[in-house]
Write a protein that binds this DNA or RNA. Structure first.
Length: 424
RNA sequence: GUGGGUGUAGCUCAGGUGGUUAGAGCGCCAGGUUGUGGCCCUGGAGGCCGUGGGUUCAAGUCCCAUCACUCACCCCA
């Protein structure tokens, strides 16, 4: 084969679409209920947008970005996530002048240059929400509850919600210093990556999975024990609200998340059935992000879920989609009829918005019936020499096999008036 | 970026130690006594055996490279 989809990308085929649409429909129904409005931002931005938001030191920026220079010499990058772009748009369009909070949702492809694996692609789809303008713990709760409701409606059982607070610019730096001090003497026991992290981004030490590092880090100070008064109170308030709504969570002091803009609440929904790419979605609070873009200080909290990964998990857990209904009309007509009244009927039905199809392949009646069956059409209209002579139209209900004859007017009234719900 | 596994029809997979015209199931197409789907039966189409080199009289089979997928690391959706 000469050309294949580029490494780490996938075609989403017509047969995949029912599952995709199901996810999108469930997500958008929640957005409506929760009051989120859609925004679509460009698929690429100035690299700076991502460096400033996601973080210079993050893996995403360091080694996973698709960066390129356009013909005008602009340095751009395909978006590795969408919070940065949405935040940029928030400032650019003066959304801080709107009644707060401003609640936005998005969906679309993201790009990360990473080694592909099941559940990890170079182009993948995320759907996410952002709530700007409030520090109220209720807004953290809303975002988490939204995510949890989303997974519930898809039929997930047993997903785990990991929860942590990563502090704020008041309490995180002192904590990071403490961490450095404590870990420094044990430096020799750490993996090379962690030795580097100790310098650049000590928080990331915490979620290293190398066994040696975990041992070396035992008894290290926990961030949830070093939060400032504000952060501690905020975290408590979020937890209280989760309890109130009966949402189970697992406190995970090692949950750090790789995007540097997070402050306070960080959370992640984790699947047991997925191997190492187990995170189905996550998010948190980012109170300094808008300011980092030179916008007016504006807190925010948001989340994103990964479409392909959810689909994988649903398949593994045997979660079914709503069954496909029989729908529409297949016109099984002899050639002479199809050149005349069959053609007229076909477009009459289509103009009325019905799913209607006829044969272009010169099939026999038997083959057309089979085709109508496989194509999941509800009705077959059968036109042959005999029905033409008698001036009647045969219609067959494929669901039950019942068949009857109508005049043209009756047929139209039946198909258009009652749509396709009732039986022949 | 590091290490392991895999790569044969549209799909899921068979093809001991290299040996003629590469198979099955599903799907697709056609037919089963002059045109009515589902079940069943029969037949047909469809494969540069991922790609490129090499070894050999002979390679789907062995070797090397490359690409892709996959698992783990890493990272995260």
């Amino acid at each position: 084969m000469k050309h294949k989809a580029p490494r780490g990308t996938k075609d989403v085929l017509p047969t995949d679409m029912p599952a995709w649409h199901h996810l999108e429909n469930v997500f958008e129904a929640l957005c409506r209920a929760y009051g989120y409005a859609e925004i679509r931002t460009p698929i690429f931005e100035d690299v700076e947008v991502f460096i400033r938001s996601v973080g210079e030191e993050s893996d995403v920026v360091q080694k996973e970005m698709y960066t390129f220079t356009d013909r005008g010499g602009r340095v751009l990058a395909l978006r590795p996530e969408c919070t940065a772009g949405v935040s940029r748009a928030f400032i650019e369009h003066g959304f801080h002048n709107l009644p707060q909070p401003v609640k936005l949702y998005y969906r679309g492809p993201m790009f990360r240059y990473d080694r592909p694996q099941a559940g990890r692609q170079r182009q993948f789809y995320q759907m996410g929400i952002e709530l700007f303008g409030s520090t109220d713990p209720g807004s953290d709760l809303e975002v988490i509850k939204f995510t949890s409701a989303f997974f519930d409606r898809l039929g997930f059982k047993g997903l785990q919600l990991h929860l942590n607070s990563v502090g704020c610019r008041e309490c995180r730096p002192p904590y990071q210093e403490r961490l450095k001090e404590v870990v420094e003497p044990r430096k020799a026991a750490l993996c090379p990556d962690c030795q580097k992290r100790l310098q650049d981004n000590p928080l990331r030490l915490l979620d290293c999975k190398v066994p040696g590092c975990q041992v070396a880090l035992q008894g290290v100070p926990r961030i949830d024990e070093h939060l400032c008064a504000f952060c501690a109170a905020h975290f408590e308030a979020v937890k209280t609200r989760l309890d109130l709504l009966g949402i189970d969570y697992l406190l995970d002091p090692r949950l750090v998340r790789g995007l540097d803009y997070y402050t306070h609440t960080a959370f992640e929904f984790v699947s047991q059935s997925l191997g190492s790419q187990y995170s189905l979605g996550g998010g948190g609070r980012y109170d300094d992000l808008i300011e980092a873009f030179a916008g007016p200080p504006t807190p925010g909290v948001g989340m994103a879920v990964g479409v392909e990964r959810i689909l994988l998990a649903m398949e593994k857990e045997g979660l079914s989609l709503p069954p496909a209904e029989l729908e529409g009309v297949f016109i099984a007509a002899a050639p002479a009829a199809m050149a005349n009244e069959g053609l007229v009927l076909l477009y009459r039905l289509r103009e009325a918005g019905l799913r209607a199809e006829a044969d272009y392949m010169g099939r026999s009646l038997k083959a057309m019936m089979k085709h109508a069956h496989r194509g999941k059409y509800r009705f077959a209209v059968i036109l042959d020499e005999e029905t033409r002579e008698r001036g009647v139209w045969k219609i067959r209900d494929m669901a039950v096999g019942a068949q009857r004859e109508y005049s043209y007017e009756e047929l139209l009234a039946y198909l258009l008036g009652q749509r396709v719900e009732d039986r022949a």
